[in-house]
Design a protein around this nucleic acid. Structure first.
Lengths: 176, 176
DNA sequence: TACTACGTTTAGTAATTACTAAACATTCTA
DNA sequence: TAGAATGTTTAGTAATTACTAAACGTAGTA
C-alpha cells in the first residue's frame, strides 16, 4: 500500500524525537528540528505550532537552544515581523558549534573540578596516609589524561568538518 | 589549610556525579563509579552503600548498567559469597564496550527508522507531490549519510583504543 | 530444616524535567 | 494612542526519572 507523504513525515519526526531523547534532549526538540528539516522553506513559529502540536511557549524556548547549538537558524523577511526558522543542513557546521557551546557548559565546569582535585594533590596540601594519596594521585591523573585525549579528539572532529564528509573514512584507514 | 583526604574524595565524587548527569545518566551512577575508581581494592555492595549513601537496591541496578557499559567489573572471592566491584581503569576499553552496547540501543532503533523512511521513498511507494517527495528524499539521504559518517568515526575510535592514548594527537596532526 | 547473609525486584515517593495556558512585553499599523 | 500581531516569560501541571524501603529469592551454614 502506498504511504502518504504526511505519514512519512510523521514517522521521520518520531524517529528524530527518539534520537533527541536518547541524547538527553526533550523529544519536542527533535520534533521541531525534524519539521524544519523537512520543510523546503523557513517556517514561522505558528507554522511550527501547527505541525508539531506543541505550544508557542515551548517552541519559543526550545528553538532558542536549537539556535544556540547551531542546528537551526532564525531569520526574518522584510516587511514581515514574524521570525522564521530553518534547519542547518550541514551537520558538520552544527557539530562544530555544539562542541564549542560545550566549552561553557556544566560539563566543562565538572571537568575542571577534576583538574582542581589534581592540583590540590600536587601542591602537597592534602593530609592523610601517604600511600593512599599517591594511589589517588595516579588514578585522578589518568582520568585527567583521558579527558585531555577526548578534548583532542573533539578538536580533530572540528577540523574534520572543514575537510568534508568522506574523510572520516580516511581516518579509519590511517588507523588500521 | 590542608585538605583532608576524605574531602578530596568527596569533591571528586561530586565532579563525576555532575559529569554523569551531563551525559544523561543518574548522578548516583557517577558517584558509584567515582567511589570504585578511587578504591585500591574491589568493594562489596555494602561498602558502596556506606560510601555513597545510596541504598542497596539503587546500587544493585546501577552497578549492573555500569557493568554492561564495561565501566566496572564484578568479581567474587573464593569462600566469600559477596560480590565485589572494581572500576575499569582503561577508558579506551570502556569506550569500546559503550560503543558496542550502543548497537542494541534505542538510539540505533531510531537511526534504523530513518533508514526505513529512506527505503520507502526509494521504493517509490510514497504518494504525493513529486517535487516534495524529491526534496524530502534528498534531505533524508543527507541525514543518513551523516549517521553513517558518525558510525565510521565511532569505529575509528574503537581502533584508536588499540593504539594507546597518545595517538589522538596523531589524528590531529594528520588532519591539520 | 531453620537461620543468616547476601543480591534483586517491586511498589511507592521524591525530585526533576517537559510542557501548557495564560499573562506579559514589544513593535507595527491604523 | 488604541489595537493587533507577534515573541517571551511565568506559574502551574503532567510526565518522567531516580531513588528509597521493604518484601522477596537464593544459597550457604548450623
Amino acid at each position: 500500500m502506498p504511504t502518504k507523504i504526511t505519514d512519512l513525515k510523521q514517522d521521520f519526526t518520531g524517529g528524530l524525537s527518539q534520537i533527541s531523547r536518547f541524547w538527553g534532549f526533550p523529544k519536542g526538540m527533535g520534533a521541531i528540528f525534524a519539521v524544519l528539516y523537512l520543510s523546503p522553506s523557513p517556517l514561522s513559529l505558528d507554522e511550527i505550532v501547527e505541525q508539531t502540536g506543541l505550544t508557542k511557549g515551548a517552541i519559543s524556548t526550545e528553538v532558542r537552544t536549537l539556535a544556540r547549538m547551531g542546528l537551526v537558524h532564525r531569520s526574518s523577511k522584510l516587511g514581515d515581523r514574524k521570525d522564521y526558522y530553518e534547519a542547518e543542513t550541514d551537520f558538520y557546521t552544527s557539530i562544530r558549534s555544539i562542541l564549542k557551546e560545550r566549552q561553557n557548559s556544566e560539563f566543562d565546569r565538572a571537568v575542571r573540578s577534576v583538574a582542581e582535585t589534581l592540583e590540590k594533590i600536587e601542591s602537597g596540601s592534602v593530609s592523610g596516609d601517604e600511600a593512599e594519596i599517591q594511589f589517588i594521585h595516579q588514578r585522578v591523573q589518568a582520568l585527567q589524561d583521558f579527558f585531555n585525549a577526548i578534548d583532542s579528539l573533539a578538536k580533530a572532529v572540528i577540523k574534520l568538518e572543514r575537510l568534508g564528509i568522506g574523510n572520516v573514512k580516511n581516518i579509519l584507514s590511517i588507523l588500521k
